[in-house]
């Protein structure tokens, strides 16, 4: 039982990171990014390219992945979403679907579709917590990464001038522009942070399982569940959302077998849409009339 809970917690940490990516983009850039799954996988494959294929030193791997992902975020905004400014939300969502398809093709073209094992930074993967309760080092690392990302995000949005301007632009982009804020750079930053969180989640997940586009992509899409439970635009709402999804998936697999992993999160989504579509922390968005 306890080891199940530990497993759920470790999984929740990854879901929290993915959910963070969904919420951040929805909130600052106003985009429901259905390419999140593909971008998660892309981040992990880029990391793997530097770490495993090229065998670069670890600091270079980390910084190189970060730089590449941030650059991808900037390109995504300037090349696609800046050009779609003023189009209805519908067009933005469809564009993310197109992006997902293109990224999948690119990834499969570059790295193929077989699962890979990534080069590991340390040995001795299994950590014994208590008697009979153990997890991998990567599980613990994922938890730490999630804590760090959420704490950093909290501090960033509350105390830094850039974070405050991002919140301003998220609330009202026209007023932000009238107030002299460089809204386009806010959007670039939104993409960069979201893609970084997504890449961390993808890498952690790949270390805990294996690296395959399909697996990481599916995880990234399921990450909309913690975001939805929390209300789609609430960063703090992601944490309970991630715990709920982590528990649902872990116990779903325990009760119904491994294939429940693929659907547990989606069932939670349908239930949430049915009983409380605005989520736990979202504002009510129900259309009057």
């Amino acid at each position: 039982m306890l080891s199940l809970l530990v497993g759920a917690l470790v999984l929740s940490a990854i879901y929290a990171l993915v959910g963070f990516a969904w919420v951040l983009l929805r909130r600052t850039n106003g985009i429901l990014n259905l390419a999140t799954g593909a971008q998660l996988a892309l981040g992990a494959f880029i990391f793997n390219q530097y770490a495993t294929s090229w065998g670069l030193p670890w600091p270079v791997v980390v910084l190189g992945t970060l730089a590449t992902v941030v650059a991808l975020g900037a390109v995504t905004h300037w090349l696609i979403f800046r050009k779609l400014a003023g189009q209805p939300e519908f067009a933005l969502v469809v564009a993310t679907l197109g992006l997902a398809s293109a990224l999948k093709g690119l990834s499969s073209l570059t790295w193929g579709t077989e699962a890979r094992v990534m080069r590991e930074p340390v040995e001795g993967r299994v950590v014994e917590l208590l008697d009979g309760v153990s997890t991998t080092l990567y599980g613990i690392f994922g938890l730490v990464a999630a804590l760090v990302v959420f704490a950093a995000a909290h501090a960033f949005f509350r105390y830094s001038t850039t974070g405050i301007r991002m919140r301003a632009a998220a609330e009202n982009s026209v007023l932000a522009s009238q107030g002299g804020i460089a809204v386009d750079w806010v959007y670039v930053l939104g993409w960069a942070i979201a893609l970084t969180a997504a890449a961390i989640a993808g890498i952690m997940y790949a270390y805990q399982t294996t690296l395959s586009f399909h697996g990481v992509d599916a995880l990234g899409l399921r990450g909309i569940a913690p975001a939805l439970v929390g209300g789609l635009t609430s960063i703090k709402g992601v944490i309970p959302g991630a715990l709920i999804i982590g528990l649902a998936e872990t116990f779903g697999v325990k009760l119904f077998g491994g294939s429940a992993q693929d659907v547990a999160a989606w069932v939670v989504i349908l239930v949430v849409l049915l009983i409380r579509p605005q989520g736990l922390f979202g504002e009510k968005q129900v259309e009057r009339v």
Partner: peptide, 26 residues
């Protein structure tokens, strides 16, 4: 359920529909 809320919730609900239906038929 999805269309009681704004339009994008249909995208989410149909995504869920996709994975659940594929799972069930599999």
């Amino acid at each position: 359920p999805a269309l009681r809320v704004t339009g994008i919730y249909l995208a989410i609900a149909t995504l869920a529909l996709h994975f659940i239906v594929v799972f069930a038929f599999n």
